[in-house]
Design a binder for these strands. Structure first.
Lengths: 202, 202
DNA sequence: CGTAGCTTTGACCAAGCGGTAAAAAATGGA
DNA sequence: TCCATTTTTTACCGCTTGGTCAAAGCTACG
């Protein structure tokens, strides 16, 4: 039997340092465009030292993605079938927008992975994600059927929330180039509130 | 005086071949994640042969992006200040959606570039793109001021059209994973028509 | 047919890549 | 303080990268 030793302070600190650095680099350059030297430098470690904590570049990336998907889906899980339909959907959109504001790098890491064909996460998309979306789509459909909101295609409604909110993180450079660098999130919230209020009104 | 020689048939054919291959590769892996060997193989040429037609990897990428931005903005340019406001905006959205359907690789090439901080295209975003957006925003604002459409933030309206339409190209893998691979564009068109009709109605 | 100019190839290079091995250094508990 | 364990570093490996070069092969035109 191999006895799993407890994690050292140093281990915990350095693993955290590495994941933070890797998030910074992977979210900017994608998996293939990032190098271990870059990540190690960003973390203030040497490359062999980094590889002492993770067995490979792939392993670092995987650990980031695995941790991410769960957090990313939390706002969707929180939609309450018993709540007020319009408020539930608006609330979901607002939570997603807040995540784009607070965690733009995580959003871009995810976007990079999907853009490149989701090679390391496709199974989770077809499984975990699809199951959750199917369940919540049912909820939305039943709201529409009961006349509590307008009749909208549930999946495409969810797509719209994803794309509209994540756009402000993923395309941040473009948004700022066009707006001339005023913080766009306040107006975004206002615009999206207005949009979904109108879309869902019976 | 350097006399610019006319372009050979072979030159035209091979440059086209290379750009087509480069679009395929760059749009999937981003600039840093793509290799000249990959592109050359995709084009059916050897790497030195490719470098006979383009001076560097950078040059191939730049030529793709330069050609793209223009085409990409055409639908926005086509918005007619004299037309029916709702129809003009709906028409713009439909043209953009059609571009996502017909040219998903171009959309992903662009998305990759922006995601990575737009290092090779930022000037065009702050210049050409911003100028055009400013002009069209004025048009939209005047429509709203005259009460021809609902009062919406023009720039965020344009952002919404970009993100909602490009989502179906950029996140194609995810959309198909969730929907189970039925062609999503028909329902998308229906959903977006509905959304913008409601949003703009006075 | 000959040849000048265009095109393709194969051999090569220096730098960068992900990753390894082993020894040196630091740490911490008895 | 000692020493077993953990952590870091140095030196290195084989492979891939973007790019060069000179020679060979091909085309078109007089």
């Amino acid at each position: 039997m191999t006895q799993a030793r407890a994690e050292t302070r140093i281990q915990r600190k350095n693993k955290e340092l590495i994941l933070e650095a890797a998030l910074e680099v992977f979210s900017t350059y994608g998996f293939r465009g990032s190098t271990l030297d870059q990540i190690a430098a960003q973390a203030g470690l040497s490359k062999p030292n980094l590889l002492y904590y993770f067995p490979s570049k792939e392993a670092v990336h995987k650990e980031l993605l695995d941790g991410l998907l769960d957090t990313w889906l939390d706002p969707l899980r929180a939609i309450d079938p018993e709540g007020d339909p319009t408020q539930e959907i608006l609330g979901y959109m607002q939570r997603k927008l807040e995540m784009s504001r607070a965690y733009p790098r995580e959003s871009r890491l995810f976007a990079n992975e999907i853009l490149q064909g989701a090679p390391r996460i496709l199974d989770a998309l077809k499984g975990e994600l699809k199951d959750l979306v199917d369940a919540k789509s049912q909820v939305i459909k039943s709201w529409a059927d009961r006349g509590l909101i307008a009749d909208v295609h549930p999946q495409h409604l969810l797509f719209s929330i994803w794309s509209l909110t994540q756009h402000y993180a993923d395309f941040e450079v473009q948004v700022e180039a066009v707006l001339g660098d005023e913080g766009p999130f306040d107006h975004a919230q206002e615009f999206l509130d207005h949009l979904y209020t109108r879309l869902l009104k019976r």
